[in-house]
Nucleic acid binder design. Structure first.
Length: 593
DNA sequence: CTATCCTGCAA
DNA sequence: TATTGCAGGATAG
């Protein structure tokens, strides 16, 4: 079946030999032929003169990679293969791709841009990406391959992988269909003003990457190895035998059979040994606490401390994350290889890992810009709740306000503990609260949790109205929308199965909030990049973590950047509450926070 | 070798 | 049985 392709090979040096070029033999079907360099040149000349819309594809799953296919023509380029494209052909190709009058259709624009960047070729003119179009039409889809889209939109199913010609044809045929559906669903503006330009911004971010200080990691690695070894020995001693600590199965035998500790909860296949369980057992035996430390150490070592250096591109000395623009159902980005959106921050060891993410050199700093409570502000905007709006307008401590409302106390009498509870309730609302979930998070009974929820809705009545309205809309229309009209379909919303239906109801509440926040930051990224280009600054956007942007800036630009970034992020879309951004700078990702 | 489970990190 | 993700290691087939 489908397998996600990780796109890590783009770093390889690229030459551009023309391997094959094909001309349409009857207008509809494209026949692939092998051309000589001179014939290839003539083919390119014809495209250039015709000004017709062309299809350009990069296929990184193919042995021949990357390939650039032009409608009616088929050109494939292979990395470091014998021979290079004659200069006249490179120029012809550039002429076509940089021709404002020639519209382009792509499937995965971001990857194409990265491939071409190596050859110093840009894309100009109107671009339509079938991948991004299909994503907006149905973000729940996991597979956006041309095989899948052909089946869905063209009604032509094939078990087999489409060959290059068939893919070109598919893209060519998909475009008008997808465009018409975008129009019908009022997604064209989101498509052309947000997702398409964002693809170019993401290409730039991936190319730029982020610098890693391997010295910091190396030092940590040595320390962690020593400590892990100590822990392993202590654990074996307490268990009175050696076993695989990483195996939940073997571990549960030690904990629950040999040491006879009480079973706290079960998983599908056995007895649970997760963090929650070990925390509860910690008061009864010294082993669980050691296991917790061991787990944290092993996790952080294998996932970051030892893994990050392996991901450094030797030719740039930097880590180049992949930002997936079609990976979430709400409109957020996801990141992989490495996933930079879950680098630890809460524990001391985690923070040390953040120290390894550094600015380009000693004359540069990392600038972090965080949206402050963006999801709650969006909740205020979408619901129109007076209490929330007033609080944000006065820049009050929103968690403290919620505490005073649900505990019925004066603001001045709110304790830290009350504030913490209120903060969790605020988060719960955004997730589409349930008494069960909130109770688990707060560590209280379900009745108590339900009291908090009732008190919350009593004090923020319009938030309840919003939740009800979103669920109602989902039932009626089958989807909910964000501020920019991004859709999320919720087919389970009318399910007879309570669990499934309630899950969909929570998603109906969460998706517009999470998705609108994604809309905002995506637009901000595009606008900031335009500002950087216009002002010809050397600062570069390198990371996005949902509500945070990280820039690599020359120290001389830091002040100017703060202003540009703040202004852009705070004013990207007018909400009925102020949007607040906090900005900090430092030599590494930790100090920049 | 691939798929799935368990675990745990982030916003 | 709180939302959205990615990833490593163990294990089953």
């Amino acid at each position: 079946m489908f397998r996600k392709l990780e796109f890590k090979t783009w770093l390889k040096e690229l030459s551009l030999p023309v391997r094959q070029a094909g001309l349409p033999d009857s207008g509809q079907e494209h026949k692939i032929q092998t051309y000589s360099a001179e014939e290839g040149d003539e083919a390119l000349r014809q495209i250039s003169a015709s000004k017709k819309e062309i299809v350009i594809l990069v296929d990184c799953s193919s042995e021949v990679w990357p390939q650039v296919k032009l409608n009616g023509f088929y050109l494939s380029f292979k990395n470091s293969e014998v021979g290079t494209l004659p200069p006249t052909q490179i120029n012809r190709l550039r002429q076509i791709l940089e021709d404002e009058e020639i519209s382009k259709i792509t499937h995965d624009f971001k990857t194409l841009l990265i491939a071409l960047k190596e050859n110093h070729i840009e894309i100009k003119g109107k671009v339509f990406d079938t991948l991004l179009a299909a994503y907006l039409l149905d973000p729940a889809k996991v597979n956006f391959s041309l095989e899948e889209l052909s089946w869905e939109y063209l009604g032509s199913y094939s078990n087999m992988q489409l060959d290059e010609t068939a893919k070109t044809d598919a893209v060519f045929k998909l475009k008008p269909i997808l465009e018409a559906q975008l129009k019908e669903k009022e997604l064209l503006e989101l498509f052309f003003k947000v997702e398409m330009p964002l693809a170019a911004v993401l290409a730039g971010m991936e190319l730029k990457g982020v610098k890693i200080d391997t010295g910091v990691l190396k030092e940590l690695s040595v320390k962690m190895q020593t400590r892990t070894q100590e822990l392993i020995e202590k654990i074996y001693a307490l268990a009175q035998e050696e076993f695989n600590i990483n195996s939940p199965k073997q571990l549960s035998r030690i904990l629950f059979e040999k040491l006879k500790l009480p079973v706290v909860k079960k998983t599908k296949t056995g007895v649970s040994t997760d963090e929650e369980v070990l925390n509860k057992l910690a008061s009864q035996h010294p082993l669980p606490a050691m296991l917790l430390e061991y787990r944290q150490l092993v996790k952080l070592t294998s996932t970051y401390i030892d893994a990050l250096p392996e991901l450094i591109n030797p030719s740039t000395g930097r880590v180049h994350t992949s930002f997936n623009q079609t990976g979430t159902e709400t409109g957020r980005l996801s990141s992989s290889s490495p996933n930079l959106q879950n680098i630890p921050i809460k524990t001391e060891l985690g923070r040390r890992i953040r120290r390894a993410f550094v600015a380009s050199n000693q004359n540069f700093s990392l600038l972090c810009a965080d949206y402050s409570q963006i999801e709650l502000r969006i909740l205020a905007h979408l619901s129109g709740d007076e209490n929330l709006i007033r609080a944000f307008k006065k820049d009050e401590d929103i968690h403290k306000l919620t505490a005073s409302l649900i505990f019925n106390q004066k603001i001045t009498e709110v304790t830290n503990e009350m504030r913490d509870t209120a903060k969790r309730v605020n988060f719960g609302i955004i997730y589409g609260i349930s008494a069960y979930g909130l109770a688990k998070d707060l560590g209280v009974g379900q009745e108590k949790a339900q009291d908090f929820i009732d008190a919350y809705f009593l004090r923020y009545p319009k938030v309840r109205n919003l939740c009800d309205a979103q669920i109602k809309k989902a039932r009626k229309d089958g989807f909910v929308t964000t501020i920019l009209g991004r859709r999320r379909y919720l087919p389970q919303i009318n399910s007879a199965n309570n669990t499934l239906r309630q899950f969909a109801e929570r998603q109906a509440i969460n998706a517009p909030v999470q998705g609108s926040a994604a809309d905002l930051i995506k637009l901000a990224m595009i606008n900031i990049q335009r500002g950087l280009d216009r002002k010809k600054l050397q600062s570069r956007l390198t990371l996005q973590v949902h509500d945070e942007l990280v820039f690599d800036c020359p120290d001389a630009e830091v002040n100017q950047m703060q202003e540009l970034v703040r202004q852009t992020m705070e004013n990207v879309l007018p909400l009925s509450v102020p949007v607040k951004v906090s900005i900090t700078a430092g030599k590494n990702w930790l100090d920049a926070h």
